[in-house]
Design a protein around this nucleic acid. Sequence first.
RNA 1: CGGGGUGUAGCUCAGCCUGGUAGAGCGCUAGCUUUGGGAGCUAGAAGCCGAAGGUUCAAAUCCUUUCGCCCCGACCA
Length: 431
Amino acid sequence: MRLSSYFMPTLKENPIEAQIVSHRLMLRAGLIYQTASGIYAWLPLGLRVLKKIIKIVREEQNRAGAQELLMPTIQLADLWKESGRYNDYGKELLRISDRHNREMLFGPTNEEMITAIFRDSVKSFRELPKILYHIQWKFRDELRPRFGVMRGREFLMKDGYSFDIDSLSSKRSYNRMFVAYMKTFTRMGLKAIPTRADSGPIGGDLSYEFHILAENGDDTLFVHRDLIESNWKNRDVDYDSDLQFIIDEFVNKCAVTEEKYDLTKMTNDIIKVHGIEVGHIFNFGTKYSKAMNAKVTGSNGKLVELEMGSYGIGVSRLVGALIEAFHDDAGIVWPESVAPFRLGIINLKKNDSCCSAVCEKLYNDLGDDVLYDDRDERVGVKLTDMDLIGLPWSIIVGPRSIVNDRVELKNRKTGEYQELSIEAIMKRFAT
RNA sequence: CGGGGUGUAGCUCAGCCUGGUAGAGCGCUAGCUUUGGGAGCUAGAAGCCGAAGGUUCAAAUCCUUUCGCCCCGACCA
């Protein structure tokens, strides 16, 4: 992308409404624009990040055997009356009505809808198990939206739902998602802490939240030292095998949310930390299938209520969480897998024909994941703005080094410069 | 939903106490200069002072109402 034509409104000063670092940087780097309390427009640069996160989430969901569909944002109230949640959900539910005065709502989640779809389509245990997911905008009318996209009212969520014939099979679906989540977050460069969470009135211990440790985290956690220090590496997983041993690596170590915390079990190895919840997996048995009469015929010919689970990833929240985890005084420091552009090209002397020719060649040959400052005016984005928006690598083309056919490569994370030949650059960043 | 703030140019803010009809810095536009790091000089454009009502000869400023936004708490991906 050429900066001369790119819509990237950066700000030099901190917007007053943004108090935490990720929110400030998102506004300053031109990722988002606030349109109302807790509601944001995603500007081109922010949308690119969002799309890279979506891609990773989608790939890992598919790999784990989940299938993508897309459900609408607007739902009929009737569905929610079936499950009883139309009354239970309270004011967080945005209720609207159409021209016929039909009660509708902007979906905060999709258990009811997916249960209805599944119930009407699947009649036999032979079609189980299935995991379905979608990535769709949600609306929850939060009491107090804050922290930018981390607690917005409108947010993008990956929500998945599993359907199984019995609880044993359901546990296997749940384990798939557990492992898929670890892989997903690890690919984004994040260390996610699986944390035993309150499973509410349903009971059971199959409710885990995935947290990113951050000072500004909204949740208080108690985590075993080993979990914080451990360095889980991504690995190939056979999802059809027994995944329990992978999960035990985490579950055997103590990590709990504040609600689940038992003071009597405090030891020196348990550390109190703050986290940002970026995922939540939850096995809730037959809660919805019972309420909504979702049954299939079992192998014995009798009708059986579906065993279900739901699995959420806060996709838009992850953008904020990533910035909380990866930034410095100059701005954002994106991990390569989610950076809006992999590479920036900076022309230090725009009226030097040699510099410009080299920049043009690099830009044309290095694919479309490149942001090139091709403007001849000395305004707007300069090196410091490349730092602000956090591109992992910048190629700096200046008249001094160019005489030897060399350019500088800056590593955003370390701040180090390296002089390389143009061929070496081409080879390194070839797509 | 309780508590506390705040609303003046695109952004950050001053002016309000002590009413006299709009300011700064940055950004933007134009020209000249500059060119290895978010440039300098000069000139310029830009605001129904969140909205409505009231007091007054006169309101950004005082009073009332209302709306937006932010922060702290309780609830949530």
